[in-house]
Design a protein around this nucleic acid. Structure first.
Lengths: 198, 198
DNA sequence: TTGACAAGCGACCAATGGTCGGTATATAAA
DNA sequence: TTTATATACCGACCATTGGTCGCTTGTCAA
């Protein structure tokens, strides 16, 4: 990109995409902390200080990436909810896509369900907002199930959080276990729906 | 502590305790990332380089602290398991004490969940070992329940992980919700035991 | 009295996230 | 065509960071 060319909004967000993509790869490989802005700059072949024309801080890169990822997941969930009428099957499908999404983008998963208290407040709020948006999608499916009399009355916010958070557990075990990811998901949902009691 | 006095093992671990305690307070207040070794040193009134006589790295401080905490929790769980014969009630009690522990060490647990795969291998192993020890304690309670025919057959490792991980969800909500911690725990265990189905 | 040893520390190091002022150039206005 | 503006891009620089090193200071055993 020549020096004096003014970027269109399109191009700007294209550039941000390039940066986050390269950054995520590095984060996945060596971790957020250990990835330096210099390395990211090198990966996208620009001067380090140019990165700061697109992102205010290093933190903002990861926040932006997670934001985008979760928003995409929320859209996907909404679509599933619109198409699938059985609440049980709907939850299963949403969780399945969540897990797939997770697998493809592990570094995002790590940020998905945890609150990062060391981030600046601005970033915390941005993340909380988008996370809640996603959980609300899940929560409304549960509420529908309750309204339809299929699920019993429960704290939907808590239940949604539990279900979404469970995906973390699966992701953690999955890479150190021979059990299939899908089998674990099935068992997790079985527990969520029916519990472990006989 | 005078300069030339050689510390006994007792005193050494006393000193480590002082350091971790001060460090944990800072981590809780401003987060692990933003707490510098200089600040920790100042808090325990020693020179920064003296810290390195007790801990090899900054990471090791948090790893040591979490290790100690989880080991204590595991011991407590074992004791509960030995005293309480009903698997259901046993799980409830263990989770209740887990939650108390979590509440006191929240920032660290949060941070560890997001970042611990990027710690040096040595520290990862230490943490994994101790975490598994704890989960095994929970898992064996579940196994007992299955053997007694109270729980249905399930993947105990997964179930234990789900249950333990759920405590994180509660911890997250707890500070932004008016619902009582205990009520949330009760509802969580109810879901774990009986599911959300009608 | 002396020698070994270790707690504690100040000075230092490379690397980090972030800032700043300047340069080069495409477009808009004259 | 010339000029002014806007801006992508960058090198040089900064304070702070985690971590190291070698010295000082004192204790204890011989």
């Amino acid at each position: 990109m020549p020096k004096g060319i003014m970027l269109t909004l399109e191009q700007q967000s294209q550039r941000r995409e390039e940066i986050t993509e390269a950054a995520l790869q590095l984060f996945d490989k060596i971790g957020f902390q250990k990835t330096s802005m210099r390395e990211i700059a090198q990966a996208v072949k620009m001067g380090k200080s140019s990165l700061y024309d697109f992102f205010k801080t290093k933190d903002e890169i990861v926040v932006y990436a997670v934001e985008q990822g979760i928003m995409a997941a929320a859209r996907a969930a909404k679509k599933i909810a619109a198409e699938e009428s059985s609440p049980e099957e709907c939850l299963r499908k949403i969780m399945y896509q969540h897990l797939r999404f997770t697998k493809n983008n592990k570094s995002i998963l790590l940020w998905l369900n945890t609150e990062d208290i060391y981030l600046d407040e601005e970033y915390q709020t941005r993340l909380q907002t988008v996370r809640q948006m996603y959980r609300n999608e899940v929560g409304s499916v549960i509420e529908d199930g309750i309204a339809a009399g299929i699920f019993r009355k429960t704290d939907t916010a808590l239940a949604a959080r539990l279900l979404v958070n469970s995906m973390l557990s699966i992701a953690y075990v999955s890479h150190s276990s021979s059990v299939l990811l899908e089998d674990m998901l099935d068992e997790t949902i079985r527990i969520f729906l029916h519990g472990v009691m006989n």
